[in-house]
């Protein structure tokens, strides 16, 4: 597992662990923040191992569908799910923008106390991915702060030329 590329995001929230957990596991709250700037419809939210969260994000009449299949649910501690893009019938499909993007990402969210606040760690690693998919994901992860910064550097350069 350790060789697999991983996406990690850490954040401390100024709220109790119970409240943060509720924000993740109560669909009425979850839909308020899960799709920032778009309408999020949670078609199903069955919080138990083997249960699924079926999610639709709407934007100007178009929809982006994804399904999260829960693997592990440890109250106020940990959520584990398989995260995949789907068609409108909730069948897993390749990412329309990046055909070689891993179809399924093993997603782990952990919650821990931090002196009245709550540390949340989100991690995503490809699962059951082909070598090519793993390579694409790895390249993306490694390039985010390295080589791909070049993309930003070029755009920043263009912008500074415009402004000068």
């Amino acid at each position: 597992m350790s060789e697999l590329p991983e996406y990690v995001l850490d954040r401390t929230f100024d709220a109790s662990r119970d409240l943060v957990w509720r924000a993740w596991t109560d669909p009425d709250i979850l839909h308020q923040w899960y799709g920032p700037g778009v309408e999020t419809i949670i078609h199903q939210y069955d919080l138990k191992p083997g249960g699924a969260w079926l999610n639709e994000m709407k934007m100007r009449g178009m929809s982006d569908y994804s399904r999260m299949d829960f693997q592990e649910v440890a109250e106020a501690e940990k959520l584990v799910w398989h995260h995949a893009s789907t068609d409108a019938d909730w069948n897993v499909v390749a990412n329309p923008m990046m055909p070689d993007w891993p179809r399924v990402l093993l997603t782990t969210v952990t919650f821990s106390d931090a002196g009245g606040k709550t540390d949340v760690r989100l991690s995503q690693v490809p699962i059951d991915a082909s070598e090519k998919e793993i390579a694409v994901f790895a390249e993306m992860m490694s390039n985010m702060d390295g080589g791909w910064g070049k993309g930003y550097a070029i755009i920043d350069e263009l912008l500074s030329q415009l402004q000068s």
């Binding site: 100024d14 799709g35 949340v120 930003y152």
Partner: peptide, 29 residues
């Protein structure tokens, strides 16, 4: 160039943007 960079930024910013919004929702709660 912009769409490629945005795609990557999207993946990086996506959860970040969600977490920003979650922060607001928690404050409201």
């Amino acid at each position: 160039m912009a769409s490629a960079v945005d795609w990557l930024a999207e993946f990086r910013a996506f959860w970040g943007a969600r977490f920003d919004r979650l922060d607001d929702v928690l404050m409201e709660l």
